[in-house]
Design a protein around this nucleic acid. Sequence first.
DNA 1: GTGAAAGCGCTAACAG
DNA 2: CTGTTAGCGCTTTCAC
Lengths: 343, 343
Amino acid sequence: MKDVAEAAGVGLGTVSRVFANQGSVSASTRARVEAAAEQLDYRPSALGRGLKSQRTNNIGLVVADISNNFYGEFAEGVLAQAKTMGMHVIVCASGENEASEREYIEVLIEQRVEGIVAFPTGTNADSWRLAQKLGIPVVFADRTVAGLNFPTVLVDNAAGSRRLTEYLLALGHRRIGYLGGPLGLTTASEREKGFYQAHTEHGLQVIPQMVVRGRFTRDTAYASALRLLDASPRPTALVAANNVLGEAALAAIHDHGLQVPEDISMVMFDDVPWARLIRPAMTVIAQPAWQMGQAAARTVVTPAADQPRSQVVPTEMIIRGSARPWHEPRPAGAGRSAGRRSS
Amino acid sequence: MKDVAEAAGVGLGTVSRVFANQGSVSASTRARVEAAAEQLDYRPSALGRGLKSQRTNNIGLVVADISNNFYGEFAEGVLAQAKTMGMHVIVCASGENEASEREYIEVLIEQRVEGIVAFPTGTNADSWRLAQKLGIPVVFADRTVAGLNFPTVLVDNAAGSRRLTEYLLALGHRRIGYLGGPLGLTTASEREKGFYQAHTEHGLQVIPQMVVRGRFTRDTAYASALRLLDASPRPTALVAANNVLGEAALAAIHDHGLQVPEDISMVMFDDVPWARLIRPAMTVIAQPAWQMGQAAARTVVTPAADQPRSQVVPTEMIIRGSARPWHEPRPAGAGRSAGRRSS
DNA sequence: GTGAAAGCGCTAACAG
DNA sequence: CTGTTAGCGCTTTCAC
C-alpha cells in the first residue's frame, strides 16, 4: 500500500479510503490511486485489514467427511450463503474424530473466524464453550452437544425414523433390522429412538439382535450391515440410519446374493443421488441439506437476536420402490425366506 | 498477548517465545506464562502472526461443486494432506462459472493464501498469472488453462475415453452416443478426442448426431442426455464423460422406460458410489480423486524444485456389467431397436 | 479532500 | 534468559 501511495503521490490514508470505498476522495485522486494500484498489481491484504478491523470475514465449517454427499450438499449451501454475505469458508473434516475436532476448533479460534458451523461429534463441550466465550458464534447442524444450548439447525430425527419404521410395520413387516450409529451422536440416538417409538406404538417389541450400531463412517458400516444380515432368522426389512449405512447395507445385501425388495425390504435416511438411481429406487427420508447449510451460515453470521434459537427443518418421506408388503409365510412353509409376494 | 504478559509479569517477547516455542525460556517463566494464558483463555491470533511473518498457513481450493462426489473425494485428499502440513483450507465453489472463479482468485490473493489448488474453468488466464506473479503457487487439477504452463495433476483423459469407447466397439457397438462437456474444459475436449481416436483406429467414423455436449453440471445434463436418447435411430451404447452426465443419462434412460444394459449399454468416467450400487454395476474409468487431491496439496505447498512439473496419475478401467455385446439385427428385422441378445 | 500518526497482535533483532 | 523496540499492512481519528 505504501508503494501505491508513493507511486500516486498521495498519503496512505487516501489509498485506504479508495480501497475501502469510504470517506471522500476526489475523482481525480481516486483515478490516480487506482492507476498506480493497477500498475503495481496491488491487492489489499486481508491480514492487515483484519488485524486493524478485528474482522476476518471468514467462517469455519466442520464436517465429518466432505466426500459424503450429505455434507457436500450442506457445504454447498454454506458456501452459497457465505458468498452472498462476502464471507469465506475454512473447511475442516473431523472424520468424526473427537481429538481432530478439538484441534480444528483451536485452529478456527486462532484464525479468528467470525463464526463456526459444525456437525459436532458430541463431545468437546469445553472447546465449544470456549469458542463462544471468545465471542465466536457457533451453530450446530444435524446434532447437538450435551450440556450446550447453542443455536442449531436440526431435523426431527426421531419423527423421521418413526415414519420409516411405521411404513415398514404397516407393510406387515415384523422383523425389522435397524442399522444405526453411535449413541453419542444425538442424530443417531434420536433416530434409534424413533425406531423404538414406532414399535411401541404398534404394541410391538424391538428384537434386540435386530439393532446394530456402527460408526457413521464407511470403514465400519459394512461389517455392521453384515452382522444384521447374518442374524437368524434374517430381518425381512431394514432401516438404515444414514446414507453411508444404507450404502453399506445395500452392498452387503448384494454380496449375499439378495435383492431389494424381493428378498428384503429397505428404507433409509438421506436422499442421495444413488437412492434415485438404483432400481427400484429407494424409499427415503430426505433432509434438505443445502437449505440447512444455507440457514446455518445465515444464522452464524447474524447472531440470533438474543436467545440461542434452534430451527427444525422439515424432512420429507419419499416413497419409492424399495419396500414391499410382507406376510407371514404359510404354515406349510416353503423356501428359505419371506416377502416374496407383491401386493 | 499484552494481557498475558502483564498477568505473568513478563515482557511481550517472552510470551511470544513461549507460544512460538522457540528461543529459550526458563521452565519457571514458561509455567507462569502458561498459567496466565490458561487463566485468560488466551489464544494467539493468526492475523497478528501472519502479518508479521508473512505466512498464513492457508491454502485455497477452488472446485466446481463440492457436492459432486468427485470433488468431494478430491477435497478430502487436500484436507488430509493440508492437515499433516499444518495448513488450513479455504474452499470456494465456482459452479464452473468464470466470473465467480475470478472473484475467488481475487479473494484468495487478498487472503494471502500460500497456494491455490484449482479445477480451472479454462479461462481467467490473466487472474491465474497474477496470482503466480504475486508469489502464490498454483496447481491445477484435472484440467489446464490455455497458455498457462502451471503445475498440474491430471489423468490421461483421452486414453480413458478411448478405452471406454474401444471396449464398446469391441463388443460390437457401431452406434455409440457420446455425452460430453464444453470444449473449453480441457478435460472435456480430451475425453471427446479419445472417443474420436477409438473410432478412427477402428476405421470407423463418428456419427455427428451421436455427440452431444452439455455443461458438466446438473442443470443442463439431463436435457443433453435426452437429446442423445431421442436421436433416431437411438444409440445402442453410450459413453458419459463424467459422473454428472452419467447420472443424467441413467435417469433419462429410466424415464424412457429403458434398461441398462438390455436396451442400451453404458459406460462412464468416475467411479462414484452409485456406480457400484446400481444393478448391474456400471463399467467406469476410475480416477483416484483422493490421491489427486493429496498430491495437488503437497505440490502446492512445496513448490516444485524449479520447473512447473505436471503429474499424470493413472486411471483404472473397471469392467462391470453395464455393457453387453451387440449384433446387427437380422435382416428380417423385428421391433424398434437392437441389442437384445446376450453373448 | 487529504496527510500524518497511532495502534490492531505478533515476531525478531538487539540490548541487557 | 528476558525486556524493549520496530514494523508487518491496514484503518481511523484528527488536524489542516
